[in-house]
Amino acid sequence: MQTEQTESEASEGVTEPILAVEEVTKTFGELLAVDNCSFEIEDGSITGLIGPNGAGKSTMFNVISGFYQPDSGTVRFNDEDITGLPPNEIAHKGLVRTFQITRDLTEMTVMENMMLTPKNQTGESMFRAVFDRGTIDRENDAIAERADELLELFQLDHLRDEFSGNLSGGQRKLLEMARMLMLEPDVMLLDEPMAGVNPTLENDIVERIEALNREEDVTFMIVEHDMGLVMDLCDRIVVMNEGTDLAAGPPSTIQNDERVLEAYLGGGS
C-alpha cells in the first residue's frame, strides 16, 4: 500500500516531527472544510501542501496558526499541544504564517513593518513608552540593525522608508516573509508565496526559502499551485483532497500516486 510505504520512508529519517496535525476536523455550518485530516512536518524540512481548489489547505493553515478553532483533533508543535491557542501566542512559540492575499500595513513604512514583530519590546508597555525613552532607543537600534540585515537579504533595503502600500505585489510577499522572520521562527507556513509574482522575483523567493532552510534551520510548509516548483523545492509533499489528507511522501512518490492524479484530474469515485 502506498500509505504504508510513505510512512516507513518518513520514519527512516532521523528527524522527529516539529509539527503534527492529528485528526483535525473543521466545519462552517453545514460545510465540512477539513475532515479528519492528519499529517506531520519534519524538523528542518520544506514541505509542500498541495491539493485541488477547495481541498481545505488554507483552512488547515488557519487552524494550525490559531485563526480558526478546530471542531476536533489536535495540533502539536514541538511536542506541545497548541490546539485552540490564540494566534499571537502560537506566533510567539515560533510558528508563524503568511497570508494568501498579502496583508499590508499599507500606511506604515517598510522599516516600521519590520520593527513591529520582534517580541517583548520594552516600549510595548505604555508606561515605559512614555518614561523610558533611553531603553527604547537602544532596543530600537538593535532591532533596526537586524531589520536592515533582513531587508538587504530580501533586496528591499532601497525601499526601507517607503510606505509598504507603494510596493509591488512581489515585494509585498517578500516584505511579509521578512517581517515574520523578525520573530526568528522555527516554522513558517507560507500560503501561496508565489501567487502573482513575476518569474525573476519567484526565483528570488525560492532562493530565500532555501537559504533560510539551510542556514537558519527554518522549517517551511508551503501551499503552492505551481507543481513544477513544488516538486523542485520541497523535500516532502502532503496532498489534501476534500478536506482530508490523501497522501504524503517525497515528490517522486507523489508524482506517481494514482489517487493524487485522480484528485487533480477530477476523476469520479
Binding site: E89, T98, D104, M108, L116, T117, E124, R179
Partner: peptide
Amino acid sequence: PFGRVLKSIREDEDVALAAG
C-alpha cells in the same frame, strides 16, 4: 513600539495577531 502595534491594528488586525 506601542504606537507601532496600534498602527498595525489600525491597518490590519490579523497581521498584528499573526505577528504575535
